[in-house]
Write a protein that binds this DNA or RNA. Structure first.
Length: 805
RNA sequence: GCGGGUAUGGUGGAAUUGGCAGACACGUCGGUCUUAGAAGCCGAUGCCGCGAGGCGUGAAGGUUCAAGUCCUUUUACCCGCACCA
């Protein structure tokens, strides 16, 4: 019987032999398997972690047995709010909280038997690690990709921090689900938009699941259109708009700008209803992003009394409106409104009785009724009411207008992105300090590389200030410093880096985790190159996965790393749901603790069950009975000892079965189809149990292919059967294809598509021979009943279908 | 609104990509062993029907000798994005 003593015995052996250590000076082929390193929360290891890690665990153990030098590292992404909030609540220093949590995680991970390289553990909060996070920041600054800017940022009033766009999707805080508000603040930004095209192009050279690719493309959101300069009527100023439909410019009946648009402030003396506009702006900023979207059907706005806009192509003068359906953060914060062909403009125009001009007709050139809404189904439409572009297709008209704009210097073609620059600041203590000081004379000055790491001061009060002020701001002795350039008085940046900083490059540190002279040596970077397979969750696709690709591509551009993309292949695991089918959560009380399963059933039971639960990429509910089934299977493996014999008994059937299961499991592991791999091994065990005695040669390869899933059980039985050395050192078994095919096979015969009888045929029979056997079968007579055979379809070694009429 | 996914026995899930639907496992039932129970081992188990047979992959159509798989329409649930100009 399998028990947890077996776990302990072999975990001790692995630890003593340090047998999963990867070396940097190997002449073996390398394989780099990566899992998303965990955040060491107080809640400890979750069954979701186990599922996420098991995929790469199985692959790593298999590749080692195949003779590869496997890097399968683990570390901790330990900066972040929960630890800090816990510190605030209890008064325990975040350093201590983090160390305790890491110790717990380490113990738990080891108890599951993961084959991590424990010599390469990294911790993002270790100054020797964040030294290099700060170094990369200095490089970004040096190349103009880190800048300080006063803009509207997402602020979570509950967490009291600024959030990046990626962290506030849906207008809700990633951490606490609070409604975020817009706040004008000067913060550090990273110019990720400069890398938008590179991030899109990079997707062509990696193997990501289509879902992941789509989400990233969607998030980056590139669109092609034009920027057009409209002149304010009788004024010098221009109003620049971005549009993807320059071909509809003759349909513009009004212009609209965001409430935050600077033009309003500039012309406040000439705008007659400025008070009304100010009031509208105040209301708009008060609305959360969520409300703005919810109320999207009911458009609001104020007409700007005193300003009008001149259409530079048609020469028409149209009114200017302020409305919160135009966002300051996208495009130029101003639009040319074409109500006939845009649903939002249509709704607005309907409500405020603004004219509509139809400028695109259907493909037959007929005007369409605008009674029921804007006509947007215009891909194959024809331009009308539009002077020199009349009669053209939409596509041609776009090109012609853009050329006209450029010739007349009133606009140009323009790419736009949904993705915004990365608000790279947290007003918190537990994060990487920004290695920049503000000097009265020299402005923003970077620290010298030799002065890194800039460590966090030891403080006792971690409570953030009321208005988005970091707790570091209270530490005068730390804040006040001297300028590295002029030696005069200077102040340190008191915002820290966001959660995502440390994880944006950690996979590079694993290659050479103790290096003090570089983030990793050139030799290490050139040997390991990039991650061969990276498994993680869908929730990181538009956060960590985008950020780390951005940093990596930047490091490539400045010659630090040898590859453009960090991850060659990305895979994702599905969620493990509670036994009730709901997402596991403390409040629902349906959380399964992996520790309990390991204690009661053993680590291999947990490992086997989690892989057997279903398709690796899909979510599946937890089942205690399923766990018991996995345990039963492992006990059956252990009991093979009683069946095993040293005698050399060869059986054709077992030859076929063993070669088949080696082939099937080897292939399934590569495809991450762990559930069917385990099912195949179960079937094989069922066959073995039908024998009175089984030669060890039929058990040995089974243990080897099961080893990546159940390393403790297989190591134990390997020893008991005296198979020599350790199983983890043994060579992955090969199979003989010729033994898998049998001489004679049975195939079904259908009459009019329904299986009626079966025939035995020599495996190599061709279509004619099979047809002959099928038609000669006595069973056919029962179905013919005077009918005539119209057609016989034979699919070699698969099926026969006889069509009777 | 846009994009992506899922739907198969009492349950979790398989199905070589158009070729035997339900592998494997759970559960249930039966057998064996046992003084007895548990465990183990062996067997049965999609539904209806005594049976021959019929029906069956969310629903409705279609293509095909053959459809879980392809096409059209549709429903439910999940995920991502969302006034993207």
């Amino acid at each position: 019987m399998y028990n947890k003593e077996i776990d302990k015995k072999w975990q001790k052996v692995w630890e003593e032999k340090n047998c999963f250590h990867a070396t940097n000076d190997s002449d073996k082929e390398k394989f780099y398997a990566l899992i998303e390193f965990p955040y060491p929360s107080g809640a400890g290891l979750h069954v979701g972690h186990v599922r996420a890690f098991m995929g790469m665990e199985v692959l790593s153990r298999k590749k080692r047995m195949e003779g590869k030098n496997v890097l399968f590292p683990i570390g901790f992404d330990a900066f972040g709010l929960p630890t800090e909030n816990y510190a605030i609540k209890t008064g325990i220093h975040p350093r201590v909280v983090t160390d305790n949590n890491i110790a717990t995680f380490t113990k738990q991970l080891k108890s599951v038997g993961f084959s991590f390289d424990w010599d390469r553990v990294i911790d993002t909060t270790d100054p020797n690690y964040y030294k290099w996070t700060q170094w990369i920041f200095l490089k970004l600054f040096e190349h103009g990709l880190a800048y300080k800017d006063k803009t509207y940022v997402n602020y979570c009033p509950n967490c009291r921090v600024i959030l990046a766009n990626e962290e506030s999707q849906g207008g809700v805080c990633d951490r606490c689900d609070s409604q975020i508000v817009q706040m004008e603040k000067e913060v550090w930004m990273l110019k990720i938009t400069d890398y938008a095209d590179k991030l899109l192009e990079g997707l062509d050279e990696v193997n990501f699941p289509p879902r992941v690719r789509h989400e990233q493309e969607n998030w980056i959101g590139r669109s092609y259109g034009a920027e057009i300069n409209f002149k304010l009527n009788n004024k010098e100023d221009i109003l620049t708009v971005y549009t993807t439909r320059p071909d509809t410019i003759f349909g513009v009946t009004y212009m609209a700008i965001a409430p935050e648009h600077p033009l309003l402030e500039k012309y406040k003396d000439e705008i007659k209803n400025y008070d009304e506009i100010l009031k509208y702006k105040a209301e708009a900023t008060k609305k959360s992003e969520f409300e703005r979207v919810e109320l999207s059907k009911n458009k609001t706005g104020v007409k700007v009394d005193g300003l009008e806009v001149l259409n530079p192509v048609s020469g028409k003068v149209v009114p200017l409106w302020v409305t919160d359906y135009v966002m300051m953060g996208y495009g130029t914060g101003a639009i040319m409104a074409v109500p006939a062909h845009d649903t939002r403009d249509y709704d607005f125009a309907k409500k405020f009785n603004i004219d509509m001009i139809q400028v695109v007709a259907n493909s037959k050139g007929e005007e369409v009724s605008l009674e029921d809404g804007a006509y947007t189904d215009i891909e194959d439409g024809v331009i009308i009411n539009s002077d020199f572009i009349n009669g053209m297709s939409v596509e041609d008209a776009k090109a012609k207008i853009i050329k006209y704009l450029e010739d007349n210097k009133i606009g140009h073609s323009k790419k736009n992105y949904h993705m915004k620059d990365w608000a790279f600041a947290r007003q918190r203590y537990w994060g990487e300090p920004v290695p920049i000081v503000k000097c009265e004379k020299c402005g923003l000055v970077p620290l010298d590389e030799k002065d890194l790491p800039l460590t966090l001061p030891d403080v006792e009060d971690f409570v953030p200030g009321e208005d988005g002020e970091s707790p570091l701001a209270k530490v005068d002795s730390w804040v006040n410093t001297t300028c590295p350039k002029c030696g005069g008085p200077a102040k340190r940046e008191t915002d820290t880096m966001p959660q995502w900083a440390g994880s944006s490059w950690y996979f590079l540190r694993y290659m050479d985790p103790k290096n003090n002279d570089a983030l990793a040596s050139k030799e290490a970077l050139n040997y390991w190159k990039s991650v061969d397979c990276y498994n993680g969750g869908m929730e990181h696709v538009t956060r960590h996965l985008i950020y780390s690709r951005f940093w990596h591509r930047f490091l490539y551009d400045i010659g630090v790393v040898p590859t453009k993309e960090p991850y060659n292949k990305r895979t994702t695991q599905g969620l493990i749901l509670g036994p009730d089918g709901d997402k596991m959560s403390k409040s629902k009380g349906n959380v399964v603790n992996p520790d309990d399963i390991v204690k009661q059933y053993g680590a291999d039971t947990l490992r086997t069950y989690i892989l057997f639960i279903g398709d690796y990429g899909m979510s599946a509910p937890w089942s205690e009975n399923g766990v018991k089934g996995a345990k039963k299977f492992l006990d059956r493996i252990m009991r093979l000892e009683a069946l095993a014999t040293d005698e050399d008994i060869t059986s054709k059937e077992l030859d076929r079965e063993v070669n088949f299961v080696i082939k099937k499991v080897s292939q399934d592991y590569e495809d991450m189809k762990y559930n069917t791999a385990i099912a195949a091994m179960m079937s094989y065990v069922n066959v073995l149990y039908k024998q009175n005695k089984v030669s060890k040669k039929y058990i040995k390869p089974l243990l080897q292919i099961l080893n990546p899933v159940a390393p403790h059980v297989t190591e134990e039985l390997w020893e008991k059967l005296n198979l020599g050395g350790y199983i983890f050192e043994s060579k992955w078994p090969t199979y003989d294809e010729s033994k898998i095919v049998s001489d004679e096979i049975e195939i079904p015969v259908q009459i009019n598509g329904t299986v009626r009888y079966r025939i035995n045929i020599p495996a190599q029979s061709d279509e004619k021979e099979i047809e002959k056997i099928a038609l000669e079968a006595p069973a056919l007579k029962n179905y013919i009943a005077g009918k005539e055979i119209k057609k016989v379809i034979v699919i070699k070694s698969k099926i026969v279908n006889i069509v009777l009429g």
